[in-house]
Design a binder for these strands. Structure first.
Lengths: 209, 209
DNA sequence: CATAAAATAGTACATTTGTACTAGAAAGTA
DNA sequence: TACTTTCTAGTACAAATGTACTATTTTATG
């Protein structure tokens, strides 16, 4: 990719993440990148093109994460959650301006919507394996794991937003906190064997008396 | 309150909810309310004043909800969650534009932040009673219920946003779905007695074989 | 080297937006 | 009635913003 184009993308990403898309003008990006607005326009005809470019880059990086290690299912699930969140962190403006972006860009909205469906299927497949391995208990409530996924989905999409409204600055080490939250939400569904495995992976999570 | 002022508030609330605050100008509100922009300005010196007015109205209504019925703790918790969400639904623009609003208005940001702390304390108090009544199990993981609260918090703050990005239109009957999600998230922490009670309240949630 | 293509800068424009200001009408009050 | 206060409309303005357009420079190509 063109050197200038790269510069535009890296600068705009930084500004979007820091201030939110609505507080970043094309003039801001151009001046920060040390180029003219005309030049910026040459590389991205529409402002929206910059956002879309970031979005597809984000999606691509997420795609590369989703590899499941079948030997340590439980742990790899937590790891994948964390890795995905790390990618999202780099493009956090997207999650922080989620509603604005999807309101103004139906293409992104539908694309992400499809992506979510795929992620749910992958999750339910994992649940299936975990149950087969006797690490996860059977469902007691109707659609119990579907429901669990829905909760995880909301949290993964809006965890950063939630932090931001709590007067907290975002930083990369908060991703750990997120992973902790996700792993804890899984815990009560584990079988005894599952809990034992969990205890070996995350001994520090357990209460010691 | 003044008739015109009421009109302005009801119209702006409707427009904010439908389009998001950034897509509603003062001219939109004035014309929809059938008044002049000058008149609008007379009642609300700053645009932000309209938003703040809505916010404090929202907070007041939420405050009126929080009454716990001690005889049926478990059920009243679900009910309260649902009632709060019903209030939020009426002011859903606030949750949908959460980041934008808190970014531009530190007063609201800190106020809501304090409110959240209070809500967490109320939740943990409820957990305490539920444990005393032998409906909720003891903690196995460190800060397990704190963690549960954090998850519920994210979901309650961003449930509407999550629906909106999934190409779904918001409607009042979706609140039921939210309450279902919350109640299901509580279930795995219940004791046998808690589960029995749950089963009497929500028999339809259980799997029938 | 000559020509074409790509890249860059600068200017201009149309539109939108919040808000300030003024003047007059309506309502309340003595 | 005479006045004062409250309410309403209309106009104007300054700032910001996305983007279209033109001219110029740089780079690539034959």
């Amino acid at each position: 990719m063109n050197k200038t184009k790269k510069k535009i993308l890296s600068v705009s990403l930084r500004l979007f993440n820091a201030r939110g898309i609505s507080n970043v003008s094309l003039r801001d990006i151009a001046s920060e990148a040390g180029i003219s607005v005309g030049n910026l326009q040459y590389h991205f005809k529409k402002r929206e093109d910059i956002i879309e470019s970031h979005y597809y880059e984000l999606v691509e990086k997420i795609d590369r994460v989703s590899v499941v290690n079948t030997s340590e299912l439980l742990k790899s699930f937590i790891n994948i959650s964390e890795e995905i969140m790390t990618v999202f962190y780099a493009y956090r403006f997207f999650l922080l301006d989620f509603i604005t972006i999807t309101r103004n860009n139906k293409k992104i909205k539908y694309h992400y919507s499809e992506l979510s469906k795929q992620r749910e299927m992958a999750f339910l497949k994992l649940v299936h394996y975990l149950k087969e391995s006797d690490l996860l208990r059977e469902e007691i409530l109707e659609l119990e794991y579907h429901s669990l996924y829905k909760r995880i989905e909301v949290i993964s999409n809006f965890w950063f937003s939630s932090l931001l409204i709590q007067t907290r600055k975002l930083s990369k080490n908060l991703i750990e906190e997120y992973a902790l939250l996700i792993s804890k939400s899984l815990y009560p569904y584990l079988t005894n064997e599952g809990r034992n495995q969990y205890a070996t992976y995350f001994p520090s999570h357990l209460i010691h008396i």
